[in-house]
Simulated scan of single mutants.
Amino acid sequence: MATGFGAIRRKLFTPPVSETTMEVRGFHVKNEEAKARLERIGETFLQGYAYAMEAASADETEAMLETVPRDVRGFAYEGAGMGAVVHDALPGHGGRLAGLLAGQGRHHDYMIHVGIGWAMARLPKPLWPDISATDPLLRWLALDGYGFHQAYFKTDSYVRTPEVQHPFRWRGGHNHYTPNAIDQGIGRALWFVGGTDPEVVTGLIRAYPEHRHGDLYAGAGLACTYAGGVDEDELRSFAEGAGEHRWALAQGSAFAVEARVKADTVIEHTHLAARVVCGTTAERAALVCRALRPRTADPRAASPAYETWRRDVSAELSSLSLLRKGADL
């Protein structure tokens, strides 16, 4: 059971829920329904973070996380990923992140790796986790989480001055690729900054230099699928507005579908987004991600295996769409 020390950790290190409200963040409000959805996600993230900080063990953290409603449970695991890293960075603490990934968290490993990046954004570099000990493929999601955090909490620097790209180095390899992974997280955050309004989000992406659009759309594709907050017409408009980056958007969407399928948190919106954004079923989109996932990640390769995976998924979804169109003629 959680101890008194756990309650103190939770109180001292958990950010207030008010930090995730649309008013405090200054984000666009499309309507009350979308606002409530995004604020619920933020609240759930912090709930997961608090569980990881308060619990006496990884097993207890997991038991608490499993009580969160399925539609937002992944966000709780994302928050727990951040909380586990912060917990392990405290003197005399350790093992929370490893324990989380070894239990039920292995089904939410996409989200937990994103949570690692949130912690990296908050902790001094000497307290960062040993990224070399994490999954060589999914560790790039930590930079996605880092980018999301920066765009979400430092919106003026990362969103409202889109011409600036902030330098970043880490020990995960392929430092030339880190801006791409961070942009994928920024793109995901733009879905929140834009209040799930496809027109606003598209405008935010287009304000960035052109060479960054593909990664930004990929991140936004993941968010519009995993977080939701839109109907079918809005999704279709967003996909059409992506233009040449249509299949980068689909790749991000497919990753979101696979994350929900793997964690058994598929909701009706998952099927809708798969059909509209990926152009296929949720089952097929998830299968494409699994089938094309690299078996190894060579640190000496010109690009990380993660980027090869992303490109292969994008190309396969595009090919499936062409085949379908040909069959319909």
Rank of each mutant, 00 (worst) to 15 (best):
M1P: 11
F5G: 12
K11P: 00
M22E: 08
M22P: 01
R25L: 15
E32L: 10
A34Y: 04
A36R: 09
R37W: 03
L38Q: 13
L38W: 03
R40G: 08
T44D: 05
M53E: 12
A58D: 02
E60R: 11
M64C: 06
T67V: 13
R70S: 11
D71M: 10
A76P: 03
Y77V: 05
E78Y: 07
A80K: 10
H87R: 13
H87K: 09
A89S: 14
P91Q: 04
G95C: 12
L101M: 11
Q104G: 15
H107L: 15
Y110K: 13
M111L: 15
H113P: 00
V114S: 03
G115H: 04
A119P: 10
L123R: 05
P126E: 03
P126L: 06
L127W: 02
P129S: 09
I131C: 07
A133T: 14
D135G: 04
P136I: 07
L137I: 08
L138F: 08
D144F: 02
Y146G: 00
G147E: 01
Q150G: 04
Q150T: 05
Q150P: 00
D156E: 13
R160H: 15
T161S: 15
Q165F: 08
P167K: 10
H174T: 05
H174A: 05
H174S: 06
N175M: 08
T178Q: 01
R188T: 02
A189E: 02
L190K: 12
G194F: 14
T196K: 05
T196S: 15
R206V: 02
R206E: 15
A207V: 03
L222V: 13
A223E: 07
C224N: 07
A227Y: 03
D233W: 00
F238M: 05
G243P: 06
G243S: 14
E244N: 08
E244L: 15
A250D: 06
A250G: 12
S253P: 07
V257D: 04
R260N: 02
K262R: 15
T265C: 11
H271C: 06
R275K: 12
V277C: 12
V277D: 02
T281V: 04
T281W: 04
T281E: 03
R284Y: 01
A286P: 09
V288L: 07
T296Q: 09
T296V: 14
A297I: 06
A297G: 10
A302D: 12
S303L: 13
E307W: 02
R310N: 10
D312L: 14
A315T: 02
E316M: 13
S318D: 08
L320D: 08
S321W: 05
L322A: 14
G326C: 09
A327M: 08
L329M: 11
